[in-house]
């Protein structure tokens, strides 16, 4: 944990441990490089990218954004509940975040299923290559996050968190917010960018 003194004199603390921030920073750099690669590919074949983008269902993208934002919100509430020592609420909030994570995976499976039924795969063209790979790698992150949420849920039920013992929960929350943030960039990049 790193504590820093802000200008107003109050001590601010980096949530979780430094290592999880190393992971988050590196992971986001990887995604940033892929986003740049997508934009370069788009410049080379704007018409193909635009025509393919129009085949995506914006409703799926929008619903998925709402799902992940709500899930992230549940995790924020869980961390706050731990800090208020309202420990009864924590397992419920983490379970809510987990169920929403599962809902995201189901929604993604339906969306992929529709594309595959329509004869579209990641080999169809460069846009779909980025669409399937970027959202697929992101989905792997969601899957890993859901496993993490199960671990956190178990710890919360066993009352292993408290106001002065919540580093593990903060690490998990940091990761889950990163997953959310990546989707917030992915959604406009793939579904909305004209």
């Amino acid at each position: 944990m790193v504590a820093v003194r802000s200008g107003s004199g109050e001590t601010r603390r980096l949530p979780g441990v430094e290592g999880v921030w190393v992971f988050v920073a590196a992971d986001m750099v990887f995604f940033a490089l892929l986003f740049v690669s997508f934009m370069l590919g788009r410049q080379e074949a704007t018409a193909v990218f635009e025509a393919s983008r129009q085949t995506l269902d914006v409703n799926f993208g929008g619903i998925n954004t709402l799902i992940l934002l709500t899930s992230s919100w549940c995790v924020v509430l869980a961390v706050e509940a731990v800090k208020r020592n309202a420990l009864d609420q924590v397992p419920r909030l983490i379970a809510g975040a987990f169920l929403l994570g599962v809902a995201f995976m189901v929604s993604k499976a339906l969306e992929y299923g529709g594309k595959i039924k329509a004869g579209i795969s990641m080999l169809s063209n460069d846009f779909y290559m980025y669409y399937f790979t970027l959202t697929g790698i992101h989905l792997l992150h969601v899957f890993a996050g859901n496993i993490l949420l199960i671990v956190l849920w178990n710890k919360a039920r066993a009352r292993q968190f408290s106001a002065d013992r919540c580093v593990v929960l903060e690490c998990g929350a940091t990761y889950w917010h990163m997953v959310d943030l990546l989707w917030i960039v992915l959604f406009p990049l793939l579904y909305l960018l004209r």
Binding site: V17, V20, V22, F23, A26, F30, T133, I137
Partner: peptide, 17 residues
């Protein structure tokens, strides 16, 4: 150091694609 261990997790994450 912990950062080497965390870098290990970054490495594993970079392998999957």
């Amino acid at each position: 150091p912990a950062w080497v261990s965390w870098w290990g997790f970054v490495t594993v994450a970079s392998f999957f694609p």
